[in-house]
């Protein structure tokens, strides 16, 4: 199953909650979740370093002790914000990311990989696990263009151009009669 992030999810400030089991963690190792577009390896520290950053941090930094079972929270808006400017971005994005961000026009499901990484020290990491089932789809399809109305006997016939900018489930047409 795919975990979609829709415009309504963003407006509602939806959050993913991942219960995880951690083992073998020493006190100097923490857990962070980083997001990247499909094909980018967020376990590579170069992709998490400001100058060359391709991944962005989407969770708090968790400092588990041995045997601790945390629930890791990843706000959808933090994924959508795609904040590459600060490796430790902590601000909670507002609703403006729903309509004014890298992904606010996405219509076809941008695949996002969430990497759960054990972080030790400033710049190192070892391979964590990847959650690959998040997709972003904030925008609906465009309205059809080239709508034409033809006259038939006792009916009107509509024709229109196919819409290709999104996942189409159907078309609905409404008549807007003049006042009176």
């Amino acid at each position: 199953s795919i975990y979609w992030i829709s415009q309504a999810d963003c407006q509602a400030d939806d959050k993913f909650i991942f219960p995880v089991v951690l083992s073998g963690f020493s006190s100097d190792v923490s857990v962070e979740v980083w997001a990247g577009e499909s094909g980018v390896d967020c376990s590579n520290v170069d992709n998490r370093t400001t100058a060359t950053q391709k991944c962005w941090k989407v969770s708090a930094t968790y400092n588990p002790s041995q045997g601790f079972t945390p629930e890791i929270v990843v706000p959808a808006r933090t994924i959508l914000a795609r904040d590459l400017t600060n490796a430790a971005a902590s601000a909670t994005p507002g609703a403006d990311v729903c309509t004014n961000s890298t992904y606010s026009d996405s219509r076809n499901g941008v695949p996002i990989v969430l990497s759960f990484l054990p972080i030790q020290g400033v710049s190192s990491s070892i391979a964590g696990i990847a959650f690959t089932k998040v997709r972003i789809d904030l925008g609906g399809p465009d309205a059809p263009a080239k709508l034409e109305l033809g006259v038939g006997e006792n009916r009107l016939s509509l024709s229109w151009g196919q819409v290709t900018t999104g996942d189409i489930t159907g078309y609905q047409f409404f008549c807007d009669p003049p006042p009176g």
């Binding site: 975990y3 999810d9 509602a12 400030d13 939806d14 959050k15 993913f16 909650i17 991942f18 219960p19 995880v20 089991v21 951690l22 083992s23 073998g24 963690f25 020493s26 190792v29 857990v31 759960f116 054990p118 070892i126 964590g128 696990i129 959650f131 089932k133």
Partner: peptide, 15 residues
């Protein structure tokens, strides 16, 4: 070594 275990069926959403 550190291991992280995530069970997909346990993933929840806040809504």
């Amino acid at each position: 070594a550190q291991t992280i275990t995530l069970t997909e069926t346990s993933v929840r959403r806040s809504e």
